[in-house]
């Protein structure tokens, strides 16, 4: 049983976590080509080396990022998602996006 070091809860058995796929950048859904969109939603990069992955600690409903070497299966480091995602993402003018 592998151990994953959760930034909120510390080292825990990996069975406590849910894998969320590789951290990838979404292309602009209103500007990209169909092929680019299909590549984003359907294809895996399958990189050999250190990649960023989404992991979710189920008991605390906590998403974070792990950097893992896909060749050695070593988790190099883990950190809160906020380290990568700092700004509010907008998809359109605030008037169209309601609420604020």
């Amino acid at each position: 049983m592998k151990i994953l070091n959760c930034p909120l809860n510390g080292p825990r058995n990996i069975s406590e976590f849910v894998y969320g796929g590789e951290v990838t950048e979404m292309p602009d859904p209103n500007a990209c080509s169909d092929a680019e969109w299909a590549d984003y939603v359907l294809m895996e990069n399958n990189t050999a080396g250190v990649i960023r992955e989404w992991w979710y600690h189920a008991a605390t409903a906590y998403w974070f990022v792990a950097e893992r070497n896909t060749v050695t299966d070593e988790v190099v480091r883990t950190y809160p998602a906020g380290a990568l995602f700092k700004e509010r993402v907008a998809f359109g003018p605030p008037t169209e996006e309601g609420g604020r």
């Binding site: 809860n9 825990r12 069975s15 406590e16 600690h57 189920a58 008991a59 605390t60």
Partner: peptide
């Protein structure tokens, strides 16, 4: 915050 007997 962890599973106890398989429930969180």
């Amino acid at each position: 915050q962890t599973p106890v007997a398989r429930t969180n």
